[in-house]
Design a binder for these strands. Structure first.
Lengths: 136, 136
DNA sequence: CTTGACCTTCCAGTTGCTGGAAGCCTTATG
DNA sequence: CATAAGGCTTCCAGCAACTGGAAGGTCAAG
């Protein structure tokens, strides 16, 4: 298979696949004409990476996961550790975003959004109101 | 004030302030010795930027917000529009992360996390189970 | 006078692609 | 058989928003 086919089937852009080869994530063979030649196993690997990326794993995580996948002597605890670590980072990101959202939507609600210049959003950025005290 | 002071008071790293100058976000004066000289207004601006960044606004958003802030003929609707747009993007990010989190935590729960190699996380990445049908 | 804390500039690297240019290769059509 | 369209190749540049580090000037204290 050529790169276009694989891209379509794995759901990963051709450009991205070339990049993955560049960083050594995949190593397709080459045809006589210089085209990359992908075997089914390469397609499988790319689909694996695509799904891992869709779950937010970093490229380095993907490398680790692929290594574990092809390691017969792996322990599922190793995989779980990677996933749990990632899960923790997702939670952190969500918490941060939710906190932003709360602050921002409170400000947006207070803003008249009309033709007048007075704006609590700008006022808060310029000189923030003390945040309500939140117990830990 | 020198950059160290401003950095401390505005809560923005000195390195970042230099970067902000480079991209024209702030324009401190210069002392005879070549040191950047920050006036109170510069500090205020940096604190403004710092808070906007903490709310997740992009640098370009910051530029826009600063322009609106110093525009007497602004309409609060303009500010509100920027904020609402940003809020929408935050919501999108949260939704994406929550979706990842759901999938991933389901997998993590199914993983024994012991010394054996069998792992539903890897199994799913290699060959995903059909996702449960979710009504819109 | 020296030491140490600041400050300066410049360069490079981060993450994960993405776009574009210039130029082969292949296949279908006139 | 010529050509045009589409696919493939490489290489270079750029995005966002910093961050780290090297090499060197400046300043205040002891």
């Amino acid at each position: 298979m050529n790169i276009g086919d694989v891209a379509q089937r794995a759901g990963v852009p051709a450009k991205t696949i070339r990049y993955y080869e560049e960083i050594g994530l995949v190593t397709p063979q080459r045809a006589a004409n210089g085209y990359r030649h992908f075997r089914p196993i390469d397609l499988h690997k790319l689909a694996f990476i695509g799904r891992a990326r869709a779950l937010g794993f970093t490229i380095e995580d993907c490398r680790t996961l692929l290594a574990l996948y092809s390691d017969d002597s792996r322990q599922s605890a190793q995989v779980k550790a990677v996933a749990q670590d990632h899960l923790r980072q997702i939670d952190e990101k969500i918490a941060k975003l939710v906190s932003m959202k709360e602050t921002l939507s409170a400000l947006v609600q207070q803003c008249a959004g009309d033709h007048r210049p007075d704006c609590p959003i700008l006022a808060d950025l310029a000189d923030p109101a003390p945040r309500p005290f939140i117990l830990p």
